[in-house]
Amino acid sequence: MSFRPLLVTLLAAAVATAGCAGNTSRDVLLVSAAASLTDAFNGIALAFEADHTGVDVQLNFAGSSSLREQVLGGAPADVVATANPDTMAPLVDADLTTSDPLVFARNRMAVAVPSGNLAGVSGLEDLADPTLLIGLCDEAVPCGSLARAILLRAGITAAIDTNEPDVRSLLTKLEADELDAGIVYITDVIATGDGIEGIAIADAINLATDYPIAALRSASDPQAAEEFVDFVLSTRGRDILARHGFELP
């Protein structure tokens, strides 16, 4: 039975969550970031903490639309980084950011197939094959709207079998070989490692999304928040982002 490790994991998660909820120390820097930034921002947070020993960076990852709703709804956050400018714009309009957001990274898309590529997918045009199981992100989230824009530019009507709510669940199904192909961020192909193979989309058709970052007016320690934004834009921050597959502006 594999339930015991699973239950242990769930319990551990519950305990960890409970632990975080009570922690409101002034040295904590709350960073809300798009889910596709998970690995890169974990690395950046570690490096930042090494430089700023008094600061404890706590990361909150979610889909960009969810982040937008959280911040608009008054959830505590000091810095916010989303996966496209559209989700950042309402925060600027509401005058929640200290200054105009800065683009710190750019992400392109790739066709992703399960490792081994048993269905023999060779490129974007195979997404029109109705005999294959094709998944995209839902058009309501950035990875889904980008994928549709790319398909439109290529003149391809994809035979979609599922519109996943976020890129993470799309990747899970590709890794499990339950889908034959999908369109995801290049950074996801790199982060997922052995489970996924990426197939490049021609530069003439491919699209990129810009990642903006901004410190928030509500930050409990405005100086630390500005320092974190600066760190992301610094050479060291850019190095970490590049290592995880992001393009740099």
Binding site: D138, D161, T162, N163, E164, S169
Partner: peptide, 12 residues
């Protein structure tokens, strides 16, 4: 959504 996915008129 985890098992059956999300597609209008089939699984949504």
């Amino acid at each position: 959504i985890t098992f059956a996915g999300n597609l209008q008129s089939r699984t949504q």
